[in-house]
Simulated assay, not measured.
Amino acid sequence: MTPLTAVETYLRDFHQRQVGVTSAAFAHLPARSASTRYASSYAVLTDLVLTDLVPLSNMPLTVLDLACGDGYLLGLLAARAPATLHLTGIDMSEAELAVARATLPPSVRLQCCRGQALDLPSASVDYLVSHMALMLMDDIEQVVREMRRVLRPGGQVAAIVGRTFLLGEVNDVFMRVFNAIASVALPPLRFGDRRAGSEAGWRELLDGAFAHVAFDDIDVPWTPTPNELWAALTDTYDIDRLDDDARQRLRSAFLDAVAHLLTGDGVIVTGWGLRLVRARAV
C-alpha cells in the first residue's frame, strides 16, 4: 500500500483509538431535508440505494461503501436488501474493519485500502455510497477517478459530507473560542480539499466523469445539554489533536460562551449540518 500521508496517518490512528465514533455520533439522531425526514443520516443513503436498486432486484448488483468504518451503513443495507445485492466495504482502519467483520453477515466483503487506490475491478460497482468521509480525503481528484473507474457506466454515487459544523448560533460561538485557542495551540494539519466543502467545488471535482450532479442540505437537529455537546465535540478531529491544557481551556471558554444560548430546559438548540451529493457515472 502507498505510504499514508500525514492526514491519513492521523485519521488511521484516531480510528484505532475511537472505533465506531462516527456511527455513535450520527446513527441515533434523526435527519431531515427540506422535504423528507429520516431515521438518521445513514438512513438517507440506505433509502436511496433501496429505492434506486430494488426495482432491479432480479439482477445481481454491487454496492460499495467507501470508508465504511465499523460497517453501520452496510448493516442497515444488509438487513433490508434483497439477496441479489452484493455489499462491499472499504476502509483504511483495520480496527474499524474488525468491528465490521464481527457484526456484519459473512456475505459482506470487507477490504483495507485507500480511496485513492481501490482494490476492485473496473466497472464492477453499481452504486457507491459514503458517509462523512469524502471531504476528509487527500488527493480527492484521484479518489474521484477511482470512484469513476470502479463504477459501471450509469452507476450512481450518493455521499453524505459535511456542510457546516454546528447548526445555529452555537456554531459561531464555538468557532470564535476555538480559533482563539487553536491559532496558537494546534499544529497545522489540513483535512481534505477545500472544494469538498461547497456545491461549486463538488461540481468542479465531478465534472467530466459524472453527470446529473445534485445536492440536498441534510440537517441533523439535536438539543444536548452543554456537557453533552462538549462530550460530542471531544470526539472531533481538531479537538482531539489539542493537548490536555488547551482542551481544558477550550472547554471552559466554550461552556461560558454558550451559557446565554441555554433554553429554559437547560439545553442548546443545535445539531450537525450535512450535505447529500448525488451523481451518475457517464
Rank of each mutant, 00 (worst) to 15 (best):
Y10L: 14
D219G: 03
V54I: 05
F14S: 04
N227I: 15
L61Y: 01
D193T: 14
F178S: 03
L166W: 05
H28L: 11
S57C: 07
V125N: 03
T88Q: 06
P221K: 01
S198H: 10
T5V: 12
L97R: 03
A257K: 02
A39D: 13
Y127S: 08
G192V: 13
G20E: 14
V269L: 10
F14P: 06
R194M: 14
L45K: 00
S93H: 15
R176C: 10
S40P: 05
R17S: 09
L50F: 04
L110V: 04
G197L: 10
S252L: 11
G155A: 06
Q16R: 09
G75M: 10
T236F: 13
A31Y: 01
R114I: 00
G192K: 07
L134C: 06
T36N: 04
V54E: 12
A67M: 07
Q156I: 09
Y237K: 04
V129K: 03
F165I: 12
D172F: 14
A79E: 15
V177C: 00
Y42N: 08
A34E: 05
S124V: 15
L87T: 09
D91E: 11
R176L: 15
A214V: 15
N179R: 12
V184I: 13
R149V: 03
Q116N: 10
P60M: 06
E199G: 09
T9A: 13
Y72N: 13
G154A: 02
L50S: 04
A231W: 14
L85A: 04
E169W: 05
M147S: 11
R251G: 03
S35Q: 11
D193G: 08
L274T: 08
T236V: 15
A257T: 00
D216R: 13
L250Q: 04
V49W: 11
W272T: 08
A200I: 08
R109W: 07
V220R: 00
M135G: 01
Y42T: 02
R148D: 09
Q111A: 13
F254L: 06
Y42W: 04
M147P: 00
T270K: 08
A79P: 07
L45S: 04
E169T: 12
R80F: 12
T234R: 12
M132T: 05
L250I: 01
L64I: 09
R163T: 01
S183Y: 06
V220W: 00
R251W: 00
V108K: 00
L76Y: 02
E228F: 15
G162C: 07
